[in-house]
Write a protein that binds this DNA or RNA. Structure first.
Lengths: 335, 335
DNA sequence: TTGAAAGCGCTAACAT
DNA sequence: ATGTTAGCGCTTTCAA
């Protein structure tokens, strides 16, 4: 691989001039530029960005910590991050953490060794190891789709989770449902608590309340949705509607309901959250909350970029709007 | 951020010794190591890997070109790649190409600027720009899940696509189907042609043949599966079974069949390919081909690693085994 | 076992 | 507008 010296030699100029001709064309004379570009052409020269980055002290890469890359919602967020990153000359390092602290710490650590200029955490845990906390304080990080528990030092880009849960509650109440079950995500997640709170609040507004017997814990997976639905639907007074906190669990819940010979939505309404593409193709299609996944990603990346560039960065909180998408999985309460 | 000189100063040794103490502990005396580690502890020193990588001339990163990160099959492959990469001290750069040459060239170009030591291409196109082909010849690359069209210079890690399609054909024939439709992927893809060939071959073995009227083109998306199914099922002599070349299209096809008031599998059997998790939760659950997605990824990464390390690398071809997974979406032909 | 020093390829400050 | 050169933080060769 040819280097900048080689190009300099061939074009009869100094390495500095080559560097300028490539990075800042208007700083060199047209003839010089010409010569340099010709030499670049001949040698097939490509600058060694490893050297450039090292020299500039930046990697121009960001690390994305994602709890589960196989979740299509996160895929879309990542896509948004990547688009924005590319626009800004950054590359995206992928850290699939499976929600495990050890993985998070491993990947977050890459920012401490200058392999990434910043982090986007899509989960709710502070990703650095305790012993690294001091050094880590200076690492730019943005929290998207989630909020890091007990830590408001970092900018957050999230959905109006509370409002979305309210909208969903209102939708179900308007359909006449009063015994409503919920399959939550992991309760340590702040957004799960937001959704639960919003849902409950809206029920109260209608003279109803969450029945704690009808709130079961899920893991954001289809199988946990099925398990949760089984619990709910086999209870003595089963709910007529189930609010699942993501689409995967809703898919699992519908599957389970059918297995139990219940019709959706006639016997039980089921809702999701996220509006992944699959939710249009379930039977019946899923009533859900659309999250602007790519937007969330893009905004997170843009925010991170500003932190990296040293823009004064208060711990901001950006709320993106949701949209209630009503499809066939919810219907009038038939009790 | 403290650097190696700082640590050297504090521990009263040279930078070279610090470097050795950290990378090659047995090269320094125990006492020295002790001193160095103490200084590391005190300063919270983390080596600047940007510098290390630059110095060593390697990025210790690999670029993964993925046509569609929102496809759960690819997510799983990436997961396998990432696990293996981590084991080997490599990081994973993500390049979501959407199948577009411009994106592929952009991301592949990162290997030319030393931002990645190698590439894993999950699509069937030679990813470099024509003008870069000469320089690119020395870039380690592995092709996984697909085969680059007209180019056998690179190792390939793939499924026994032909055999899988045969197994699926056999399954359908054994159920009594003879009018079988196919929804393919993009025909420029070699593996699509493999599957088509295998499927056809097996039909012939049973005295049947593919009817070109019943072969429609899909794009590996749910909506294209629905469109394809509509074409097939509204034909004058509609097929009693449809072989879809991935699970998404099968999900779209089932959706469409139901929309047309056809029962699956009583009126039409539908099969998928990939065995993504969603395929267990469709109604009915999908008969499909299980691909060892993580294994494919892991093997690709390991192969790439060997190329990067300069192991002599003939253009190998690794075939991983499939498994036919029979679920409820296929049944006896009722004609 | 350890230290001194060259060098990786580039950028940028300084000089011309 | 262009050249000279120091330096980024580390690894590694060579010498001691």
């Amino acid at each position: 691989m040819s280097n900048i010296r080689e190009v300099a030699r061939r074009s009869g100029v100094s390495v500095a001039t080559v560097s300028r001709a490539l990075k800042d064309p208007q700083m060199v004379s047209p003839q010089t530029r010409e010569k340099v570009l010709k030499a670049v052409e001949e040698t097939g020269y490509r600058p060694n960005l490893l050297a450039r980055n090292f020299s500039s002290g930046k990697s121009f890469a960001v690390m994305v910590l994602v709890p589960n890359i196989a979740n299509p919602f996160f895929s879309k967020v990542i896509r948004g991050i990547e688009k924005a990153a590319q626009d800004q000359g950054y590359s995206v390092l992928l850290g699939d953490t499976k929600g495990e602290p050890a993985h998070e710490q491993f990947y977050a650590g890459m920012a401490l060794t200058n392999q990434a200029d910043g982090l986007i955490q899509l989960d709710s845990r502070y990703p650095f190891a305790e012993k690294d906390a001091a050094v880590a304080a200076s690492i730019p990080m943005v929290n998207a789709c989630e909020r890091i528990v007990d830590d408001d030092r970092y900018p957050v880009v999230e959905l109006d989770n509370c409002g979305a849960a309210q909208a969903m509650a209102r939708h179900l109440v308007e359909l006449g449902h009063s015994r409503i079950g919920v399959i939550t995500g992991p309760l340590k997640s702040p957004i799960v608590r937001d959704r639960l709170a919003g849902f409950d609040e809206e029920l109260h507004r209608h003279g109803l309340a969450l029945n704690s017997q009808l709130v079961v814990n899920g893991e954001f997976t289809m199988s946990s949705g099925a398990v949760g639905a089984e619990k709910l639907l086999s209870a003595t007074s089963a709910p007529s509607a189930i609010f699942c906190m993501n689409d995967e669990m809703a898919i699992g819940a519908i599957h389970q309901a059918k297995k139990m010979r219940l019709r959706v939505p006639e016997d039980v309404s089921v809702t999701g959250f996220d509006n992944i593409e699959f939710s249009q193709f379930t039977d019946p299609p899923l009533t859900t909350i659309d999250q602007p996944a790519e937007e969330l990603g893009r905004y997170a990346m843009e925010t991170l970029r500003q932190m990296i560039d040293g823009k004064p960065m208060k711990s901001s909180r950006t709320i993106l709007p949701f949209e209630l998408v009503v499809r066939g999985s919810t219907g009038r309460c038939q009790d």
